[in-house]
Write a protein that binds this DNA or RNA. Structure first.
Lengths: 240, 240
DNA sequence: ACCTGAACACCGTTCAAGT
DNA sequence: ACCTGAACACCGTTCAAGT
């Protein structure tokens, strides 16, 4: 009652905060893509002039950094001490969940040059699992890089091909069939013909590729480690 | 001599052309990143008003599309009919060469939503090789998607971690060591400590991951195909 | 047919001025 | 301490006017 008339706008009930700015940025990104988070748009949504944001945030780059941080935090959440393969699987699933909720996230993460604070925490928990499973420092780093290349790369590929998420793949296949001169693109026509009938299961393909990599990394591990390590590797943390 | 004084500016010797606009865009991107290709900057480089570009190009999006086309054309060049694994390896090498010449390329390709003309040609040649090697339409599409997720994803990961290309990885590792509180990040410290001494060979890691995937895809192929197909599919031995 | 000049609707960021 | 108003240097794009 004593407060300024906040019922009118529905915003500005309290003073601005870095957190409130980032929340608004998240909403804008979820609604209209990363391109629609602008300082001016952010101000508009918060009922404030764009210039005012600079009291709580260092600039647009800081907003994007904060957004990256929030989103990689969502992926990192909840690391358990299961065997490394299922820990990596769980991580992949969580990442894909985040990309479903925030379709702009993978492009933003990929575009950042320096590691954000929560990216460090993320690396720590992944490397911790791998080292605990018996990977050498070098093999752990390799496995991390190879897995993430695939996990994040798959999402970008999916976005480029406008696959999945309620998109009718049989229809996209038919579009390709229509757009292309058949004798110049025989292989493309054959593949598109296949998918015009039976839809494409992107989740199954993702899992297939993930298992290929996990299996390959696992074989490399038993090649190198002595037997009792290889046995322990799947189940238990070793004392560090 | 009868021409307008072109010696003065060094530009504008001939009338503008879509091709000349795209060449200029390529130069701008190579020099200052994709962010520095703007319509106004393009006009400045070509000695022309930004508005004039609209006589040869449909807008900025068309410029970016043209750039994507040029660059995926470079990757696609020269498909041979070797066995599928070495064809895929060669493709990966060519892609990485392009990313070295044009560091902005992978992000641009990933950001495009619809397939450009040369992306269709690219898909045709890849799928052609895989089908020719005995892959079913479905398995060919899967292999294509999985491989490209890894190939392009690796490049984005490399860029995010500012790995390779003359960057001293032992130094970056030491930076990490300095920036982090050791007992909060034990795994990170252990791994960074390793790489502070022996540098990180990004090419070797890329090849490792690529071989994991190729091997996995190949095993899947022999599982399904009859023996004589499996033999044709790859001239490498199947015994493991 | 091609190019220019000027305009429009947007950006991010700075800074003196208000409260 | 926080916010505003106005300004600056940029964007992409349109369009009448020039040649």
């Amino acid at each position: 009652m004593t407060d300024s008339r906040s019922a009118e706008t529905g915003k500005r009930r309290t003073t601005l905060t870095r957190e409130r700015v980032l929340d608004a940025a998240m909403e804008l990104a979820d609604e209209g893509g990363i391109g629609s988070v602008t300082m001016r748009g952010l101000g508009r949504r918060l009922g404030v002039e764009a210039a005012s944001l600079y009291n709580h945030v260092c600039g647009k780059d800081d907003v994007l950094e904060g957004l990256t941080d929030l989103v990689t935090g969502e992926i990192d959440a909840g690391v358990d001490h299961a065997d490394w393969k299922s820990a990596m699987r769980r991580r992949a699933v969580r990442a894909r969940g985040v990309f479903k909720r925030h379709p702009w996230a993978s492009a933003l993460i990929d575009s950042r040059e320096r590691m954000s604070p929560s990216a460090l925490a993320y690396a720590e928990s992944v490397l911790g699992v791998l080292l605990g499973a018996g990977f050498s420092a070098r093999d752990a780093a390799n496995a991390f890089l190879i897995l993430d290349s695939y996990i994040y790369g798959f999402e970008r590929q999916r976005a480029s091909l406008s696959l999945g998420d309620g998109i009718d793949t049989t229809q996209s296949a038919q579009e390709v069939l229509g757009a292309v001169t058949p004798d110049a693109f025989p292989a493309l026509v054959q593949v598109a013909g296949e998918f015009a009938e039976l839809p494409y299961d992107e989740d199954a393909v993702f899992d297939l590729g993930l298992e290929l990599i996990l299996t390959g990394l696992g074989e490399r591990l038993v090649e190198i480690e002595p037997v009792e390590h290889a046995f322990r590797a799947d189940n238990a943390p070793r004392a560090r």
